[in-house]
Each structure stands twice: as C-alpha cells, then as structure tokens.
Amino acid sequence: MTLRIPWIARLLITALALSGSACAAEVPAVTIRTEAYPRPPYSEATYYIYERDGKIICTKLAVCDKYDQCDIEYHAGTFVDSQDQKTGKPYHVTAAVLIPVGKRAKHQCLAKFVPDAL
C-alpha cells in the first residue's frame, strides 16, 4: 500500500519548512573567544569576549589564582583592565567559536547585557 499525499499538502509542508528556515536565518550569530594575560604571583586573567557581527558585545573577566579560585566580572562592550593593558599583548588567544542559540542562556554576560542575543 502506497501513501499518496495530495499536492496541496505537499505545498503546505514545503511552505512551512521554508518559513522555519527563514526564521532560523534571522538569529544573529554570536561567537566567543578568549585572551589570557599573566598576573603575578601565579595567577592569570582570562577575558571571554562575546562578539556579534564582528563587534564586541560584552566581556567576562575571570582572574584565577594557582588554586583555581576565581573572581569574575562582567562588562558591556570592550574591556581590558589597566593592569593587563600594561602587559601588552595576551600570551594565549583562542579562535572565535559559534555559540548555539540553545546554549546562549547559560552565558551570564549575554543575559546581563545583551538579552536580545538569547
């Protein structure tokens, strides 16, 4: 027994599929990358930089000691602490990685400063 779908049903299914992909295309891509700076003694400042359309939308700063105890700050837009500006270039940089839409709510920086990215 073969299942026959009328042409109008096929047309509706195709229209729904296309409208769903159009809505998915409207969600802007948000990426995250990191930069690390040394902090004496035995600590490190890691900046988590969130970008959308090539622009920095918020920055998370985590300063961790050798026991992995961290102080965390969130800043809207671009931020580099004056202590790290004196250091110069970061010693470790990661490439930007796309954050899936379903996981964006877990990122406090986005929730605080860019709710439309969620």
Rank of each mutant, 00 (worst) to 15 (best):
T87Y: 10
G102R: 13
A45K: 01
V114M: 11
A62P: 02
V30M: 06
E73H: 12
P41R: 11
A96N: 04
L12V: 13
Q69M: 13
W7A: 12
P40C: 05
L118V: 15
L11I: 10
V63P: 01
D71V: 14
C23R: 14
T78W: 08
S19P: 00
A17Q: 03
P6G: 13
H92P: 00
T87Q: 12
A25I: 09
K103T: 10
D84R: 05
G88F: 03
K89P: 04
A96P: 02
L12D: 02
T46Y: 03
Q69Y: 13
T94K: 02
T34D: 07
T2M: 10
K86T: 15
A25Q: 12
E44D: 07
I5S: 02
E26H: 10
R52H: 08
A22C: 06
P90W: 01
F79P: 00
G102C: 08
P38F: 03
E51M: 11
I49P: 00
H75Q: 06
E26Y: 12
F79N: 01
C70K: 03
T78V: 15
T87P: 01
T14Y: 04
P28L: 08
L118S: 14
V114T: 12
P40H: 09
T31C: 08
H75L: 04
V101P: 00
R104N: 09
P115D: 07
E73D: 14
P115M: 06
L16P: 01
V63K: 06
R33L: 14
P6Q: 09
T94C: 05
E44C: 04
C23Y: 13
I32H: 02
A45N: 08
E35K: 10
E51D: 14
W7N: 11
K106W: 08
K60A: 12
S43N: 07
V97T: 13
V80F: 03
L11D: 01
G102F: 11
R33D: 12
G88I: 05
I57K: 00
G20C: 10
Q108P: 07
T78M: 08
P40G: 09
D116W: 11
L98D: 12
P40E: 13
G54E: 06
V27F: 11
T46N: 09
E35H: 05
E26N: 11
C23V: 12
T46M: 09
H92S: 14
A29C: 08
V101D: 09
G20L: 13
V30Q: 01
V93Q: 09
V27R: 13
A25N: 09
W7E: 12
C70D: 03
Y47H: 05
V93S: 09
A15L: 13
V93P: 00
I13C: 07
S43C: 07
H92D: 12
T34R: 09
A111G: 05
Y91W: 10
T59L: 04
P28M: 08
K106V: 06
A24L: 15
Y47S: 02
L16Q: 07
I5C: 03
K112G: 04
P6W: 07
C109I: 04
S19L: 13
K55T: 11
I56P: 00
G54I: 06
